[in-house]
Amino acid sequence: MTTRIGVVTFPGSLDDRDAQRAVRLAGGEAVPLWHRDTNLHQVDAVILPGGFSYGDYLRCGAIARFSPVMETVIEQAKAGMPVLGICNGFQVLCESHLLPGALTRNDHLHFICRDQKLRVENAATAWTSDYAGGQEITVPLKNGEGGYVADERTLDELEAEGRVVFRYLDVNPNGSRRDIAGVTNAAGNVVGLMPHPEHAVEPLTGPTTDGLGFFTSVLKKLVTA
């Protein structure tokens, strides 16, 4: 039986198709989920894709966080189901308080779109086990509100517990505190990051295929679980 990975489409999601494609390329079955679904259709993991859910009104991710599908996703994430939030998905996870901190306007106010080098700081999460700790990867980054902020105590806690999963290398593109590009929850099943691994899974369309590891990691984890 193939492993089923749900990809949520909110009104305004952009990268849901690419996320589904990345799941298929990694060998999983991609299951489209709609923001109004409260039933997750027996998926084993969920991806919240990039985009501008609900037009990014109020705050990025603030309205998506209260959508019917998120009620079930939050419940299942707390029970241990792997959840990955990419870009807008990361913002939704922070707004849901599944991950600490928040994403704010880039310090230079410009929307950025570039290939970004990252270091994998934690290769023990559900979504990063196919990487080596300290491995450097390059994937696209594109956002206007990607500055990761949290209070000093939370940042210290994240560092001490190894919950900073990715850090920006060479350049901090958006003013994120301590160059943080992605974090995980205490259990390691929920991961959020601003860069886009789903755009780096094929040589034809991506700068690298460095992003594929996210999807193969979770498939392996679910098969051995």
Binding site: L58, R59, A62, F66, C94, E95, P100, G101, A102, T104, V149, A150
Partner: peptide, 8 residues
């Protein structure tokens, strides 16, 4: 819960 994000 909604209008403000009290984290920031």
């Amino acid at each position: 819960t909604f209008l403000a994000n009290t984290v920031i």
